[in-house]
Simulated assay, not measured.
Amino acid sequence: MWTLQDAKNRFSAVVDAALAGQPQQVTRRGKPAVVVLSAAEYQRMRAAAAEKRGSFIAHLLDFPAEPSPRAGIRPREVNF
């Protein structure tokens, strides 16, 4: 894990480690801030996430067929 200042000072080492397959965590003010990883690993993660995510149509078809309990609620009368 790198502090932000150390990561800035040794950015080449951070990138080299990420390219070697070891994601590098960077902290800011003692709290985790970012992770540096290789472009290949990032693309792999995006592809895996896209595979898990179904189509939008499938998502809509997965909704329950029962009407929602709010369907019977009517708006109140308003006099102008």
Rank of each mutant, 00 (worst) to 15 (best):
Q24A: 06
A33R: 10
P75F: 06
M45I: 13
P64V: 04
S68M: 08
L60H: 04
V26E: 00
A49K: 15
N9E: 14
A33D: 11
P67R: 13
L61A: 11
R74P: 00
A20H: 06
A65H: 13
F63R: 15
I73W: 06
L4M: 10
D62M: 11
A39K: 14
L4Y: 09
R76Q: 10
E41C: 03
T3S: 13
A18R: 02
E66A: 14
R28P: 02
P69A: 01
V26L: 03
A18I: 00
R70A: 14
A65P: 07
G21V: 04
T27A: 12
P75N: 11
G54D: 03
M45G: 12
D62H: 13
Q25K: 12
E41G: 03
I73A: 08
R74N: 07
K31N: 10
A49W: 06
D62P: 02
Q25G: 03
A50L: 05
T3K: 05
A58P: 04
H59N: 13
T27K: 11
H59C: 09
A13P: 01
D6Y: 06
S12Q: 14
P32W: 05
G30E: 01
T3V: 06
P64D: 08
R70S: 10
A47D: 12
R53S: 11
P69M: 04
S38G: 06
Y42D: 10
S38A: 07
E41W: 00
I57T: 15
Q22M: 09
A17P: 04
E66Q: 14
Q24W: 03
Y42I: 05
L19R: 14
M1V: 13
R76N: 06
E51K: 15
S12H: 12
F11V: 09
Q25F: 05
Q5N: 12
R70E: 12
G54L: 00
S12M: 07
Q22N: 12
K52S: 08
D16G: 05
R74C: 02
S38E: 00
A49L: 10
A71G: 02
V34N: 03
A50S: 08
A39Q: 14
V34P: 04
V35E: 04
R10N: 15
P32D: 03
P64I: 04
V35C: 03
A50N: 10
V14W: 02
R74Y: 05
M45K: 15
F56Q: 13
S12Y: 09
K8A: 09
A18W: 01
G30Y: 03
A65W: 08
A17N: 06
E77R: 13
E66W: 05
A20D: 07
M1A: 13
F56H: 14
F56C: 07
A49S: 14
D62G: 15
D62V: 04
K52A: 08
P69C: 01
A40R: 14
V14N: 06
S38W: 01
E51M: 10
Q24P: 01
V35L: 01
L61V: 09
